[in-house]
Simulated assay, not measured.
Amino acid sequence: MAKASDLRRVALSLEGTTEAPHFDRAAFRVRRIYVTLAADGKTANFKFTPDEQKFKCMIAPAAFQPVAGGWGRQGWTTAILSELSGPELRQALEMAWRHALPKSPRR
């Protein structure tokens, strides 16, 4: 069962991640935001690709669901932290974090 403190610890251990307020949430970013943590610490919104979102929601429907509306169609996915194990949380964070890394320069 993951907690807000676990999300914060793991996210901040990922290279280049910083934390800052984002409306009523805490946002974790590298070049762009890849996860936000609700003020109550019970849920987090992850930025996945639409295919990753579909897969996460299919294999763990009690834990993951698309954010309503256009944000959800872009891959933003809400996770109920208490439904995730520590390894599941880390895997989701690393997946979202990779999308936020700066693009390699083209040669």
Score class of each variant (00 low, 15 high):
K103P: 12
M58C: 08
K47R: 15
Y34I: 00
A26L: 13
E83P: 09
R9V: 05
P61Q: 03
W71K: 09
V67Y: 08
T78W: 06
S5H: 10
R107K: 15
P102R: 12
P21M: 07
A63P: 09
A60N: 14
S85W: 10
A20V: 04
Q53E: 02
V35E: 01
K47L: 13
A79W: 08
H99F: 05
R107T: 13
A4V: 07
T18C: 07
E83R: 14
A63N: 10
K47Q: 09
A44Q: 08
L12N: 08
A11Y: 06
H99T: 00
L84C: 04
R8Q: 11
T36N: 02
L101Y: 08
E52H: 07
E83Y: 04
P87E: 02
L37N: 04
Q53D: 01
P87I: 04
K3M: 05
R98A: 14
K56P: 09
P102T: 03
L93S: 00
I59Q: 06
H22A: 07
F46P: 01
A96E: 10
R98S: 13
P87D: 02
M1D: 08
I59T: 14
K54C: 02
L14W: 04
K54V: 02
K3T: 15
R9Q: 07
R73Q: 08
G41K: 04
R29L: 07
P61E: 01
P50W: 00
R25H: 15
A68V: 11
V30W: 11
W97K: 09
E94Y: 09
Q74H: 15
R8D: 06
P50Q: 10
A27H: 10
E94N: 11
A96C: 10
A4Y: 04
T18A: 13
A92R: 06
E15P: 04
V35C: 02
L89M: 08
E52Y: 11
H22Y: 09
A62E: 15
E52M: 13
R8M: 00
G41T: 08
G86A: 13
M95H: 10
P21H: 01
D51I: 01
P102S: 01
P61L: 02
G72N: 11
A96P: 04
G16S: 07
A26F: 00
F55L: 13
L84V: 06
E88N: 07
T77Y: 00
V67W: 03
A60E: 07
H99A: 10
A38M: 08
A60V: 03
E52R: 14
G70N: 15
V30P: 07
I80F: 11
A38N: 09
R25E: 14
T36S: 05
S85P: 12
P50L: 02
E15T: 09
A26P: 10
A26E: 14
S82G: 10
T18R: 14
R25C: 05
K54L: 12
